Computed example of a mutant assay.
Amino acid sequence: MSKSAGEYLSSGPRFAEAEVIERIESFRKRRPRLLDDHITLAHGAGGKASAALVDAVFLEAFRNPSLESLGDGAVLSLPGGERIAVSTDSFVVQPRRFPGGSIGELALNGTCNDVAMTGAVPSWVSAAFVIEEGFRIGELKDIVADMAAAATKADVQIVTGDTKVVPKGAADGLFITTTGAGVIAAGRRISAESVRAGDKVLLSGSMGDHGMAVMLARGDLAIEADIHSDTASVSPLVELLLAAAPSTRWLRDATRGGVGTVCNELAQACGCGVVLEEERLPVRPMVNGACELLGIDPLYVANEGKFVAVVAPEEADAGLTAMRSHPLGADAAHIGEIFPEPADTVVLRTGFGGTRIVDMLVGDPLPRIC
């Protein structure tokens, strides 16, 4: 039976129940308005500024039913009844090579993961390269080789693409845009509309590995840590989950803005509350230490091989066991639950018995990590 807001907040020692609920109400999310006159790095962070930009500029101009869901990819129905998923992403990560991966590997895996989050199996990828004049051919070959190796590992084909060269100074070396497509198995329905109170929130592995690996690879900080990006195609892990938990409601890979921002998107899309358990959130000690030194919450640090899943309560244990059976899901965890209240809000229950709001990311602590 689902608990009420009062039942799960009343354990908090710092505020009276009514005061806690009032504070939550004041934090309730509304779609942010675009108040800026110029683009800032925050508009690319995947948080409030990004949502405002998408709403006011792109959604306003391109509005249609397929786009309205604002998911990782569009789900399209073919005349014969089959459904396919299509997703596009651009990659501008700096540095282009980092512990655990490169921009080529990241571009392939990132787009495959967006397709997988719709319940589709990624099969085809298109790749477009914007190359700055003077870029070394040898480095380009290495990056393309990384991309080809990632495609082979993910069992997808790069079937078309484009190349543009711009003058020196018109781009920062190399940008890659990829589009992926795949077929959705009959009967699969992955959407926020299917999320219900009592559903369980699962995370496929540890948080923040990619963002911290890229941040430290830039060499601007006097921090040394053995942290590697988690970039990988998660499609095999998704298929294991869906086989064990066929009633899985919703999937989203936790890239820009991290798990905290993804859970806010979930709360706003389904109109429910998401309650996370701090002590269950998996974070590697090295990543946690680096975040503490930098004053960054791991909840907001990007991943490139992890996803959040909302599953039916009766299938949660089976789904978690299935994910943990695969190397990519060895650290998978049950991190929270869906509640009817407080609507549109994410609450973190801390290890000390209190609670705090997990708001959507506002600024951009780690620009150009993907």
Rank of each mutant, 00 (worst) to 15 (best):
A5N: 05
G6C: 12
E7T: 10
E7D: 15
G12Q: 10
A16Q: 14
I21F: 05
R33V: 14
D37C: 13
I39L: 15
T40N: 08
T40F: 03
H43T: 05
A45R: 06
G47K: 05
A52Y: 03
A56M: 01
F58L: 15
L59A: 12
A61H: 06
E68S: 15
V75H: 02
G80Y: 04
G80S: 07
S90N: 06
I103S: 00
G110T: 02
D114Y: 04
V121R: 13
V121K: 02
S123E: 13
V125N: 02
E133N: 09
R136S: 13
R136M: 12
L140A: 08
K141L: 13
A145Q: 13
A145T: 11
A154T: 11
D155A: 15
K164H: 09
V165Q: 12
A171I: 07
L174V: 10
I176F: 01
V183Q: 08
V183P: 00
S191A: 15
E193N: 13
G198F: 04
D199I: 05
D199C: 10
L202D: 01
L203E: 01
L203F: 05
D209E: 14
L216C: 07
R218P: 04
G219H: 11
L221Y: 09
A222Q: 14
A225E: 11
D226E: 14
I227T: 02
S235K: 02
P236T: 07
L237S: 01
L251Y: 00
A254E: 00
R256K: 14
G260C: 07
T261R: 08
C263N: 11
A269D: 04
G271V: 08
V274Y: 05
E279K: 15
R280H: 08
V287D: 00
A290Y: 02
C291P: 00
C291K: 04
L293K: 12
D297N: 14
Y300R: 06
V310C: 06
E315P: 06
L320F: 02
T321S: 12
A322K: 03
L328D: 00
G329M: 09
A330E: 12
D331V: 03
A332M: 04
A333R: 09
I335E: 02
E337R: 15
P342F: 06
P342W: 09
V346T: 05
R349A: 14
T350W: 07
M360C: 05
M360A: 15
L366W: 00
